[in-house]
Design a protein around this nucleic acid. Structure first.
Length: 462
DNA sequence: GCAGAAATAT
DNA sequence: GATATTTCTG
């Protein structure tokens, strides 16, 4: 358990130094073991140095590509001959190295490697996409993983920075996935160390992952997700083309993922967790459906990071839902919209308050005025089916909100709301959002034993 | 600039 | 198909 191997490959970064292939083996146990340590050195010694590889990529990368990835290149574009020559020469060098003293130590010596690569759940082998590791995401950062697939089906992972992230991260943004213990609490960054977002791994961990989802690490604290960028960027580009040349310039210059421009491409995807939705409903109920407009709701909700657009979108959906409910007023809640069904509709908003049928699932905190915290927020993994049942914590399984009626994960404050439907409790004071619990247990209401409450956007009160 | 609807993306 | 974001329109 104490052994770990980190393989990090960086190529085509923003500087000469980054343009390298670096393979680092960290074998904590081996560090105490001279035998192992020597073998590691031996292996490292056999690797091509940065200088061996830099000329290759500098010669081969086209200017367009280099520009796109902010790779410094020679000012004069290489000719075809240059490329061929450089390729040959570099290949020769590599061959020489390969034929020479390039011997790799046996990986069997490093069970850590074995277990990680086979058990990590990343299909197709490879070093995996470390940042997808829930444990890694625990660090509470706000980095956004954007994925896309190229033709070969390989995922492209790009780590960008949230607009809210003002502090600099170290170079580990896309680095190892197993380096740290993944304690989001200790990894406090800009917002004080909440286990912020979790950007789930599509297709990863088909039941065999590290199990962080349901662990007491609270591997799923998040609520925002960044989706594929390629399609988005393409769409953006298409649209900018439609709009004219003025904007395509922005897209052009914004290709370099230097943090500033990538931000404009996409905003993290907000998942309307039951808690969040409940807050939303409270706000709407407080305002009355007539006066409930996105901005006001947003202000009343007082949730950091929530935008007017988020609220507007949700309000749009919510209104549709209410309409539908009015039509179905005699038939009870719509199973097709479990999120909405999960939170009470204030009497002022609904003609059919009898709506809630899952009373046998009422939580202990129901009826308690004040902030009521429900199970940890559920991110919306692209493939939730990959999450092992039971690993999500109470009631957290199911595709989307499927199985909701039985899992009752979102019976939030139903009784509470019935008792005090017009009380948008905690508003103006609390900013808990996408609450998480390190214990993995449902977070309790205020007044309950002091469960550790982690907020997505920790505030001074956290 | 905001709200709401519609289109689009994931 | 569901859900969220983005864009469009008033």
């Amino acid at each position: 358990m104490s052994k770990s191997v980190t393989m990090e490959a960086a190529w085509g970064g923003g500087s000469e130094e980054d343009s390298r292939v670096a393979v680092t083996v960290v074998c904590m146990a081996a560090m105490k073991d001279d035998h192992h340590n020597n073998r590691v050195r031996e292996w490292e010694a056999g690797l091509p140095a940065a200088a061996d590889l830099t000329p290759l990529h500098h010669s081969l990368i086209t200017r367009v590509l280099a520009r796109a990835f902010c790779i410094p290149t020679n000012t004069t574009p290489p000719t075809q001959g240059d490329v061929i020559r450089a390729s040959k020469s570099t290949l020769q060098q590599l061959h020489q190295k390969a034929n020479g003293a390039f011997t790799l130590p046996s990986f069997e010596s490093y069970p850590g490697y074995e277990s990680r690569t086979t058990g990590g759940g990343e299909r197709g082998g490879g070093g995996g996409y470390a940042a997808e590791d829930p444990l890694e995401d625990e660090r509470g950062g706000f980095d956004i993983i954007k994925r896309s697939k190229d033709d070969s089906g390989r995922k492209n992972v790009r780590v960008t920075r949230s607009p809210m992230l003002t502090s600099e991260r170290d170079g580990a943004a896309s680095g190892s996935g197993i380096g740290g213990a993944g304690n989001g609490n200790s990894g406090g960054e800009i917002h004080g160390g909440g286990p912020g977002y979790y950007w789930p791994s599509p297709g990863a961990m088909p039941g065999g992952g590290p199990g962080a989802y349901g662990s007491d690490q609270g591997g799923y604290g998040g609520g925002m997700e960044a989706g594929s960028e390629s399609t988005k960027a393409a769409s953006l580009e298409n649209k900018s083309r439609k709009l004219g040349d003025t904007e395509s310039e922005d897209v052009d210059s914004g290709d370099c993922p230097d943090g500033n421009t990538a931000r404009t491409l996409k905003r993290p995807r907000l998942v309307w967790t039951p808690q969040l939705h409940k807050r939303f409903v409270d706000a709407v109920g407080h305002l009355g459906i007539k006066n409930a407009v996105p901005k006001t709701i947003m202000q009343l909700m007082n949730v950091e990071g929530l935008t007017r657009e988020n609220v507007a979108s949700h309000l749009q959906k919510y209104r549709l839902y209410l309409k539908r409910m009015q039509g179905l007023s005699t038939e009870g809640p719509s199973a097709s919209d479990p999120l909405f069904a999960s939170a009470p509709i204030p009497p002022s908003l609904t003609p059919s308050p009898h709506f809630f049928t899952n009373h046998h699932h009422l939580r202990a905190d129901s009826g308690v005025p004040g902030p009521s915290f429900s199970p940890p927020a559920v991110p919306l993994p692209r493939s939730q089916s990959a999450i092992p049942p039971g690993a999500l914590g109470p009631g957290m399984m199911g595709q989307h909100f499927g199985g909701y009626e039985h899992q009752h994960p979102y019976n939030i404050g139903l009784a509470r709301s019935a008792a005090a439907p017009h009380r948008p409790h905690g508003m103006g004071e609390h900013r808990e959002f996408l609450v998480n619990s390190h214990s993995g247990a449902p977070v309790r209401a205020a007044g309950s034993p002091p469960h550790r409450i982690l907020t997505l956007f920790p505030t001074s009160s956290s």
